[in-house]
Design a protein around this nucleic acid. Structure first.
Lengths: 164, 164
DNA sequence: TATTGTTATACTCTATAACTATA
DNA sequence: TATAGTTATAGAGTATAACAATA
């Protein structure tokens, strides 16, 4: 008995989802529940890898470079959804670690090209997975169906987060 | 054609999930994809409400007090998965805004009881939903099925994040 | 003059270590 | 001596504003 209601609450659109009438005990909107879930998991993930060599932000940038190829700092900032000065710091840290390198832009002297180095590529391919120990354990405790839900949710969330 | 594989990669358990063989183009583990999705949505959520009066962390604590009732700072820190000193600051900010109040513990002079005030309860009930404008818009753009996935994912994620 | 990127600065969130008060 | 909580301090992550270099 699926039911979705979009209503006007305080002059704003509120999206609620209840897959079953018996589940409406949780009155919080889907937005509220999803926000709390994301904030709390983010906190756990950050705490969990406090002693690792790269921060979540640095790993995220590295992953984007691996997935999308070399690009300028501005493009990388846009892809990651952060402001250029924030990306400047991330790139500087990754460059310091020799995981990325800059080269001059072929036609525009203002810009630069940021590229993964060989160690950077190795890190993405080999090391990142090993860093997921805590999360992998949590995921291994779930049922196949639950992992399926999270897999699809990850896709949907990425799409939402990428929204202009 | 669902397929789940748990394999040893670099001496660590890696959980992958592919709901379809044709979807295995994305070689990243579920853990990697979920981590990136969560980090990025968290970033968006934070940026989206930069000018709001309460931070995501403060809202999270307020929500817990509303859901679970009054408790000591230590219990609240544990529920939120943060260290006591972090919670001290959150409570101080909420107290400053008169959204929570402290009272002495009836039997233990070291402890205190943190309770929602009437304005705090109003905030949780009325204001939080309105703050979800950006996320509500994104959710409204999804299909019923996608919202269903996110609803279930939020539950699963909360359970994982709550894990000791 | 507009664009790209960096530097300077500041704020939020969180942690650990050290301290205080009470048990 | 152990526990609950706070204060002090530090580091990550991010932003805005101001600047430099190039177009």
């Amino acid at each position: 008995m699926a039911a979705v209601s979009s209503s006007q609450g305080q002059g704003r659109l509120i999206v609620r989802y209840a897959k079953d009438v018996s589940e409406t005990a949780d009155e919080r909107s889907l937005a509220s529940r999803l926000r709390l879930a994301v904030v709390r998991l983010n906190r756990r993930l950050r705490a969990q890898r406090a002693s690792a060599d790269l921060s979540l932000t640095q790993i995220s940038a590295l992953s984007t470079l691996h997935k999308c190829g070399s690009m300028t700092p501005g493009q990388l900032a846009a892809k990651e959804g952060v402001q250029p000065p924030s990306m400047t710091r991330v790139i500087a840290a990754l460059e310091e670690l020799s995981y990325v390198e800059r080269s001059p832009h072929p036609t525009d002297g203002r810009q630069a090209i940021v590229a993964l180095t060989e160690p950077g590529r190795d890190y993405v391919l080999a090391t990142i997975s090993r860093r997921e120990a805590w999360l992998d354990l949590r995921l291994a405790e779930l049922s196949d169906e639950e992992r399926h839900v999270l897999s699809e949710a990850a896709e949907i969330i990425e799409r939402m987060a990428a929204h202009g």
